[in-house]
Amino acid sequence: MATKAVCVLKGDGPVQGIINFEQKESNGPVKVWGSIKGLTEGLHGFHVHEFGDNTAGCTSAGPHFNPLSRKHGGPKDEERHVGDLGNVTADKDGVADVSIEDSVISLSGDHCIIGRTLVVHEKADDLGKGGNEESTKTGNAGSRLACGVIGIAQ
């Protein structure tokens, strides 16, 4: 089992970053940390998408990683996509320092995120509470600013 993974985020604009993942036990939580720069100040949706395909930019990554066919939600919700990591918060300089621990994603097994795409979005994720159909699919997080395929790390 891989215990570490990394993702280099890039987009068409100024947004870029490096996100690290570490899972010490196969059924334990995954620590997610790193930094994203070039964002507007505020909240930005942060999700693992189904495919590791960036051939047409971030759009070819498909929908959120959702092997259990659930509705979109927040990272602490029972009803959520596996890939729903909530929001990252950018400061006035456009930098989001990421520090998350998640017990639904994994670096092995059915919820493995390796080979899938991590995406940072234009807007805040409403965590499935926006009151419309799009909220239950995407959290109304808007366009995909930057993305990268999650790969095994040393």
Rank of each mutant, 00 (worst) to 15 (best):
W33V: 15
E41Q: 15
K137R: 15
D97V: 12
K92Y: 08
S99Y: 14
S35K: 12
G28C: 06
L107I: 10
K92S: 09
S69E: 15
C7T: 06
S35I: 15
L9K: 02
F65H: 06
D84T: 06
E101C: 08
G45L: 02
D102I: 04
S143G: 11
V30G: 04
N132D: 12
A5L: 00
G142A: 12
E50S: 11
I18H: 03
K37M: 15
K24F: 02
V48M: 02
G62R: 07
V149H: 04
N27R: 14
E78W: 12
A153R: 12
S103G: 12
I150W: 02
S135Y: 06
E50W: 15
A90M: 02
G109P: 01
G86F: 04
G42L: 02
K129G: 10
A153P: 07
V15N: 02
V32W: 03
G139E: 06
E22N: 05
E122P: 01
G86E: 00
E79P: 14
N20C: 07
K4H: 07
S143I: 12
N87G: 03
D102G: 03
F51K: 15
G128V: 06
I36Y: 02
N20I: 08
A5Y: 03
L127D: 14
N54T: 14
K4M: 00
W33K: 12
D110M: 01
C112S: 13
L145W: 11
G34D: 02
W33E: 14
G45D: 03
G131K: 14
S35Q: 15
K92W: 07
D126C: 11
P29W: 00
L9V: 12
V88W: 01
P67G: 08
K10P: 01
S60N: 09
R80S: 06
G73Y: 15
V32M: 13
G94F: 00
I114S: 01
A153T: 07
S135I: 08
D126Y: 06
A61T: 08
S69Q: 15
G131M: 15
V149A: 06
G83C: 12
E101I: 05
S35A: 09
T3I: 07
D12G: 10
G57A: 08
R116Y: 04
T59Q: 10
T117L: 12
